[in-house]
């Protein structure tokens, strides 16, 4: 159980660092709001056939998922920079699990994913978004979002361990996150897309996540999408946690 207490202490370290540099939260606070404004008011009229409110109801759950995926990028960048600075040498020389520094950093990211959810729901409400289901489904949507963020960010952790600079982490991660989030049901209904793109959207892990959040916030089928999403989350952990830990151990 000491892995948990050590990870907890290291998560606290990350949180202190976040509190000291609040500007590091821009990508999970102001940036999602800018995207929301941009897509609602600039493209919303054209995409939503004139009905901006209906488009916002459609868009916000999807943008939540996109912001979560993008929100994990900073974690890999920070870990990459930390490792260069020698702080991790000290952790390595301590009698703690090798996983603890990475697990601790991931746990601290809960704060970032919660920020994404709260900021987007609050600002969305100001723009006219309305939860059409109820309080508990909305809480479930936030919980699922944070949970997905915690699983998805292990990709970023792994990339952070294998590339040389933190700038490269961002480059690699955006090459992955942009196709995944735009090539999905985030911005437009899947049936408006050409067949080959529909095929990609159907196998994209972001798609069931967005469908689940949509169901939980504005109504619609949930169970089947939720099952697929949970399978994806487990799959992400099973593949990328061991990859990240092995890459961390090798990077001495």
């Amino acid at each position: 159980m000491s892995v948990l207490t050590h990870s907890g202490a290291l998560a606290q370290r990350s949180l202190i660092k976040t509190m000291r540099t609040p500007e590091a939260l821009i990508d999970v606070t102001i940036q999602p709001v800018i995207f929301l404004l941009l897509f609602t008011y600039l493209f919303g009229g054209a995409i939503g056939d004139g009905d901006r409110h209906a488009y916002l109801q459609f868009l916000l759950p999807g943008m939540l998922a996109q912001s979560l995926a993008m929100g994990g990028v900073a974690l890999g960048q920070n870990l990459n920079a930390d490792i260069e600075k020698g702080v991790f040498d000290r952790f390595r020389s301590l009698p703690i699990s090798r996983a603890a520094p990475l697990v601790g950093a991931v746990l601290a990211d809960v704060v970032r994913y919660l920020s994404v959810c709260l900021v987007m729901l609050t600002f969305g409400t100001i723009m006219g978004f309305r939860v059409e289901t109820g309080f508990l489904p909305a809480v479930a949507a936030v919980a699922l979002s944070v949970g997905f963020g915690l699983c998805f960010c292990w990709i970023s952790v792994w990339v952070g361990m294998i590339v040389r600079t933190s700038g490269a982490v961002q480059g690699v991660m955006f090459m992955l996150v942009l196709p995944l989030t735009f090539g999905s049901n985030v911005f437009v209904a899947t049936d408006t897309l050409p067949g080959w793109l529909q095929a990609f959207v159907q196998v994209n892990p972001i798609t069931p996540l967005v469908a689940t959040i949509r169901g939980l916030l504005v109504g619609g089928p949930v169970a089947a999408h939720l099952t697929v999403t949970l399978i994806w989350m487990a799959g992400l952990l099973v593949v990328f946690v061991p990859l990240a830990l092995r890459a961390y151990a090798r990077r001495a």
Binding site: S2, T5, H6, A9, L10, Q12, R13, I16, K17, R20, T21, K85, G86, V87, D89, R90, F91, L94, P95, I96, A100
Partner: peptide, 24 residues
């Protein structure tokens, strides 16, 4: 180590308390 491996964002106390906690 040769390069000061303290955490720059943490205070002196926080740095040392963290190590203590990691040493159980």
């Amino acid at each position: 180590g040769q390069y000061a491996s303290v955490d720059e964002d943490l205070t002196g106390t926080q740095n040392l308390v963290l190590i203590g906690r990691l040493l159980d």
